[in-house]
Amino acid sequence: HSHMSHTQVIELERKFSHQKYLSAPERAHLAKNLKLTETQVKIWFQNRRYKTKRKQLSSEL
């Protein structure tokens, strides 16, 4: 499990705020920019979407 830097997370968050789903080319581009693997980016987005979904569910209770 590799640790992401604060800067990388900020960039991922910024991208996520604009779009929740990335196409393969977008993911490849973002990964390259942030010096991450595409898998890391993919998993981060999956986890981030899951967290957002959970938060929405709990706020509706």
Rank of each mutant, 00 (worst) to 15 (best):
Y21M: 02
T39M: 11
E26A: 06
K15N: 07
R27W: 06
M4R: 01
S23H: 01
R14P: 01
M4Q: 03
R14A: 06
I43G: 04
L61M: 14
T52Y: 15
S5Q: 03
T7Y: 12
V41W: 01
S17M: 11
A24N: 08
E60W: 12
H6A: 11
L61E: 09
H1I: 13
N47Q: 13
K53R: 11
Q40E: 07
Y50W: 12
W44L: 02
H1G: 11
H1V: 09
E38G: 02
Q56K: 14
T39L: 12
Y21V: 03
K51L: 09
T52V: 09
W44P: 00
Q19M: 07
K51W: 11
N47F: 12
N33D: 13
T7N: 13
Q8I: 07
E26W: 01
K15Y: 15
R14T: 05
S2F: 15
A28R: 09
E38C: 09
K35S: 12
H18M: 09
F16V: 01
L36E: 00
F45Y: 03
V9P: 01
K55I: 08
L57W: 07
T39I: 10
R49F: 03
L30T: 01
K32S: 08
Q19K: 14
I10H: 09
Y50R: 15
R54P: 13
S59V: 10
S17D: 08
Y50E: 07
H18K: 13
Q8D: 02
L34D: 01
V41E: 02
K15P: 02
S59M: 10
E11F: 06
T37L: 04
R48H: 07
L30F: 04
T39P: 06
L61H: 12
E11P: 02
H18C: 15
F45M: 01
K32I: 11
K53D: 12
E11I: 13
L34I: 04
N33R: 12
S59N: 13
Q8Y: 04
E38K: 03
H29N: 14
R27S: 04
H3K: 11
A28S: 09
A28V: 08
R14N: 06
N33W: 13
N47I: 14
I43P: 00
Q19V: 05
F16L: 01
T39Q: 13
Q19Y: 04
Q46H: 08
Y50I: 11
S5H: 04
K53T: 08
L22G: 00
K32L: 14
S59F: 05
R49T: 02
Q19I: 08
S5M: 05
N47T: 07
K15V: 14
L61D: 14
E13W: 04
Q40T: 06
H29G: 05
H3F: 07
F45S: 04
V9F: 10
E11Q: 11
K15S: 07
Q46K: 15
Q46Y: 10
T7V: 09
T39H: 12
H29R: 12
S23N: 09
L12S: 02
E38L: 07
K32G: 07
Q8E: 03
F45G: 00
T7E: 09
E26Y: 03
T37Q: 04
I43N: 07
L61P: 10
M4V: 05
Q40F: 06
T37F: 03
L61S: 13
H3R: 06
A28N: 04
Q56T: 07
H1W: 09
E38T: 14
L61K: 11
H6N: 10
R48F: 03
Q56W: 12
L22Q: 00
S5P: 04
Y50V: 08
H3D: 07
S23I: 01
W44S: 00
H29M: 10
K55H: 09
K32T: 09
S5K: 04
V9Q: 09
T52I: 07
E60I: 10
P25N: 10
E26R: 02
T7R: 10
A24P: 10
T37H: 04
K55E: 15
R54Y: 13
R54E: 13
R48G: 04
Y21L: 03
Q19T: 12
Q56I: 08
I10F: 10
T52L: 14
S59P: 10
R48Q: 11
V9W: 15
S23D: 03
F16K: 03
R27N: 04
Y50L: 12
H3G: 07
R48K: 12
R27F: 07
R27H: 02
K20F: 03
K35Y: 08
R54D: 15
A28M: 08
T39A: 12
L61Q: 08
S5D: 06
Q19S: 13
R49W: 04
F16S: 03
A31C: 08
I10R: 11
V9T: 09
A28W: 05
L36V: 02
L30S: 01
H29S: 13
H1N: 06
L34E: 01
R14G: 03
L61R: 05
A28E: 08
R49K: 03
Q46M: 08
P25K: 13
L61G: 09
K32D: 05
F45R: 00
Y21R: 04
K51T: 08
L61C: 15
L30A: 00
I10G: 04
H6D: 10
L30G: 00
E60V: 07
Q8G: 02
L12V: 02
E13S: 02
L61Y: 12
S17N: 08
Y21A: 02
N33M: 14
K15Q: 08
L34C: 04
H6K: 13
V9E: 08
K55D: 15
W44H: 01
E60C: 15
V41G: 00
M4I: 08
L57S: 12
H29E: 14
L57R: 03
K20Q: 12
F16I: 00
Y21I: 04
H6S: 09
L12A: 01
F16C: 12
T52W: 15
K51Q: 14
K32H: 08
Q46D: 06
E11S: 05
R27V: 12
A31T: 02
S2P: 09
Q19R: 09
S59I: 08
L57V: 11
L36G: 00
N33E: 13
Q19P: 03
L36S: 00
E13H: 04
H29I: 11
Q56C: 15
A24T: 05
L30Y: 01
I43W: 05
H3Y: 11
Q46S: 08
E60N: 06
N33K: 09
F45H: 00
K42I: 07
S17Q: 13
R49P: 02
L36T: 04
K42W: 10
K42E: 08
H18D: 12
K15W: 10
Q46P: 01
L22P: 06
K42Y: 06
S59T: 10
V9C: 12
S58T: 12
K42S: 07
S2M: 13
K55G: 15
N33F: 12
S2L: 13
Y50D: 12
K55V: 13
S17W: 13
H1Q: 06
K55M: 11
H18W: 04
E13Q: 07
R14C: 15
S58K: 12
S58W: 09
N33P: 00
R48D: 02
Q46C: 13
Q46N: 07
H3C: 14
W44R: 01
S58N: 10
K15H: 11
S58G: 13
Q40A: 05
P25H: 13
L36A: 01
K53G: 11
S2A: 13
H6W: 10
K15M: 14
F45Q: 02
L34Q: 00
I10V: 10
R48A: 14
V9G: 01
H29K: 12
K55F: 08
T52M: 13
S58D: 09
H1F: 12
T39C: 12
F16H: 03
H3V: 09
S23K: 06
A31M: 02
K53P: 10
T7C: 14
R14I: 03
L34A: 03
K51I: 07
E38P: 14
N47H: 14
S5Y: 04
Q56P: 14
K53N: 12
R49C: 08
Q46R: 09
I43L: 13
K42H: 10
N33T: 14
E60D: 11
T39G: 05
V41M: 02
S23Y: 06
L12I: 02
I43Y: 09
W44T: 00
R54Q: 13
L22N: 01
R49Y: 04
H18R: 09
S2N: 10
Q46V: 14
E11Y: 06
R48I: 09
L22M: 04
Q19D: 05
I10K: 11
R49S: 02
R27P: 01
A28P: 00
S17V: 07
Q46F: 07
Q8L: 03
P25T: 14
L34S: 02
A31S: 05
Q40W: 02
S59L: 11
N47W: 11
P25Q: 13
L57M: 07
Q8K: 03
